Amino acid sequence: MGRPRGFDEDQVVRSAVELFSRRSYDGTSVDDMVTHLGVHRGSMYKTFGNKRGLYLAALRRHIDQDVAALAEVTSRGAPPDAVERVLADGHGLGLLFLAMVERAPVDSEVAEETSRALRILDDATDAQKRTALALGLLLRARATAAVSV
């Protein structure tokens, strides 16, 4: 019988969402993951296979939790301040943005996941144009926030 896992897998994946949202896939080294997540390299590889495996787990969680939360609020026709509250509660779309730009063009699984996220948002808004506009506004706000800091 093997040793019991010494870490909370869900917590590691949540932390990986934050890490990849800030640094991107290519900007995050395995050493960064070990340091930030507090998981031994061997345990990480045993659980997730490799860096990409952890990234995919984080991206799926991000879509299932964060994108879905935003879609839920949007589908109810909530006012903009309700959407802002959802984003402020930690349901940002940073990882989705980075995945669409950085990894989707070169990784078919990431492309499938980002397409799934866009479908979730399209279904919530009932129109691709609304999703595109909303994502554009969120991306612009993210870019200008970094400048004003």
Rank of each mutant, 00 (worst) to 15 (best):
M1F: 04
G2S: 13
G2D: 11
G2L: 10
R3V: 11
R3K: 13
P4A: 09
R5F: 13
E9R: 15
V12Y: 02
V12I: 15
R14T: 11
L19G: 05
F20M: 04
Y25T: 00
Y25W: 05
G27K: 09
G27R: 04
G27V: 07
V30W: 03
D32P: 07
V34S: 07
V39C: 00
R41Y: 14
S43K: 04
S43E: 12
Y45M: 09
K46H: 14
T47Y: 04
F48N: 04
F48Y: 14
G49A: 05
G49L: 04
K51V: 01
R52D: 09
L54T: 00
Y55W: 02
A57W: 00
R60Q: 14
R60K: 15
R60Y: 10
R60F: 14
R61Y: 09
R61G: 13
I63M: 12
Q65I: 08
A68L: 10
A69P: 06
E72T: 14
E72R: 06
T74H: 01
T74M: 06
S75Y: 05
P80T: 13
A82R: 14
G90K: 06
G90P: 10
L96G: 01
L98C: 11
M100H: 07
M100K: 09
E102N: 09
R103K: 06
A104P: 00
S108E: 08
E109Q: 12
V110G: 00
V110R: 00
A111W: 03
E112C: 03
E112M: 02
E113H: 05
E113D: 03
R116E: 05
R116F: 05
L118F: 02
I120S: 02
D122I: 13
D122C: 13
D123H: 07
A124V: 02
A124M: 02
A124S: 02
A124K: 01
R130E: 12
T131D: 00
A132T: 06
L133T: 11
G136S: 07
G136N: 09
G136E: 15
G136P: 14
L137S: 09
R140E: 05
A141L: 10
A143Q: 07
A145R: 09
A145F: 08
V147Q: 08
S148F: 11
V149A: 10
